[in-house]
Simulated assay, not measured.
Amino acid sequence: MNLNKLWITILLAGMLVLTACSDNNDKEAVAEENSSTEAKNQDTSDSEAASVDKGLFNVEVTIPASMFEGEDLDTVIVDAEAEGIKAAKNDDGSVTYKMSKSKHKEMLAEIKQSIIDSIEEMKTSGDFVSVKDITHNNSFTEFTMVVDKTTYENSMDGFASFALGIGGMMYQMYDGVDPDEYKVNILIQDEETNDVFDEILFPDDMNE
């Protein structure tokens, strides 16, 4: 797995993952009305969800097929094995990575650093002129964007929250959080007054 490209993968795959989650929610709603389709919808949901199995010595991470749109899975597997991670293609197009606990810890650390580096770029690149600071908790389930409120409300800087939400959800995915429990809360705080004037919850607000 080429972790140097991970943040780019996060941003490109994020819409696909959110779309898959939205589709699965719709299917589950239909299943509640028609019990005969419940098992089928559950199977479809499971095939799109990442899973992490933390054993005594090793960790298995299964990434859904939607994360590999447009990629050659044989190359994905070769790249992973070059990083010391065993990888196997599954019949549904997903890929299962098997690694030591220390390697999994290293992988999460690299993902974390990629997100932190991207946050720093958001703050300093000038692409989001209203953003003055971004803080977060250790699990990336909550971010606070400190902004110039007037500039923020008259710009497209809200897109920064999308990148934060996707990054937080991807970190949770690789950390083994149940897909039904992915939550990232983005607080928008006015630099001048310290008041939180907006709050965005991922993925809920993306599905409305």
Results as ranks from 00 to 15, higher is better:
3 L>V: 03
8 I>R: 12
10 I>F: 14
10 I>K: 04
11 L>R: 13
11 L>H: 02
14 G>C: 09
14 G>N: 13
20 A>P: 06
29 A>P: 01
30 V>S: 11
32 E>K: 13
35 S>P: 13
38 E>G: 05
39 A>E: 14
41 N>H: 13
42 Q>V: 03
42 Q>N: 06
48 E>N: 07
53 D>R: 14
54 K>R: 06
58 N>V: 14
58 N>D: 15
60 E>K: 14
61 V>K: 03
64 P>A: 05
65 A>F: 10
65 A>R: 13
67 M>Y: 02
67 M>R: 11
70 G>T: 06
71 E>V: 10
71 E>H: 09
75 T>E: 15
76 V>Y: 07
77 I>R: 10
78 V>N: 09
79 D>R: 07
79 D>W: 08
79 D>Q: 14
81 E>C: 08
81 E>Q: 15
81 E>I: 08
84 G>L: 08
88 A>H: 09
89 K>D: 06
90 N>E: 11
91 D>Q: 08
91 D>C: 01
94 S>L: 02
95 V>K: 05
98 K>H: 05
99 M>K: 03
100 S>T: 15
107 M>Q: 11
108 L>E: 03
108 L>M: 08
109 A>F: 00
114 S>E: 08
120 E>G: 10
124 T>C: 10
124 T>L: 06
127 D>H: 10
127 D>V: 06
132 K>M: 07
134 I>W: 01
139 S>G: 05
142 E>G: 05
144 T>A: 09
145 M>V: 15
146 V>C: 08
146 V>M: 04
148 D>M: 02
149 K>N: 06
151 T>V: 15
155 S>N: 05
155 S>C: 06
155 S>H: 03
155 S>W: 06
157 D>S: 03
157 D>A: 10
159 F>N: 12
164 L>I: 01
164 L>A: 12
164 L>P: 02
164 L>S: 04
164 L>W: 06
167 G>P: 10
168 G>D: 11
169 M>K: 06
170 M>P: 00
170 M>E: 14
172 Q>Y: 02
174 Y>P: 00
176 G>Y: 02
178 D>I: 01
180 D>W: 07
186 I>P: 11
188 I>L: 14
190 D>M: 04
193 T>R: 07
195 D>G: 07
198 D>A: 13
201 L>K: 12
206 M>R: 04
